[in-house]
């Protein structure tokens, strides 16, 4: 499953619209880490609304991705974690460790525009 990546001003927006396998997720990580340089983006918004589960592998891959993107000089905000997915993550003790999150795409853009409409949380 190929995840569409959109360039919007200085940002890259990737929307996961269907279930991803472990391999799809790794491909997405590598692509975004590379495209941040290609498009000279300063921020990446990853919309995970379409992810059916966030298990230890997906959480680690997303966390690694955010750290790699940071090393490339850009920031990542993860948006669209569904309530039941958030519940499972907390129950299983899975953490995104400092990767910023926001409610949805709109809040993700607001996060980067430095005019947040609500308080953004950082998962620890």
């Amino acid at each position: 499953m190929d995840v569409p990546v959109l360039k919007q001003r200085d940002y890259l927006i990737a929307s996961v619209q269907a279930v991803l396998t472990d391999r799809d997720l790794v491909v997405l990580r590598d692509r975004l880490v590379e495209q941040v340089g290609y498009y000279r983006s300063i921020g990446v918004i990853l919309d995970v609304t379409g992810l059916d589960v966030m298990d230890s592998f997906s959480v680690r891959t997303l966390r690694d991705m955010a750290h790699m993107i940071r090393l490339r000089g850009a920031d990542t905000v993860i948006v669209g974690i569904q309530p039941e997915v958030a519940f499972s993550m907390v129950q299983l003790g899975l953490s995104l460790e400092g990767v910023p999150t926001a409610l949805d795409l709109e809040e993700g853009l607001a996060y980067f525009d430095n005019r947040p409409k609500r308080n953004h949380t950082r998962l620890r």
């Binding site: 059916d52 589960v53 039941e84 499972s88 299983l92």
Partner: peptide
């Protein structure tokens, strides 16, 4: 429930991985 079913799906994901 949806929430419990997501949790079950996550458990299956961990075990099968």
């Amino acid at each position: 429930s949806e929430t419990e079913s997501t949790l079950i799906a996550t458990i299956i994901s961990e075990l099968s991985r």
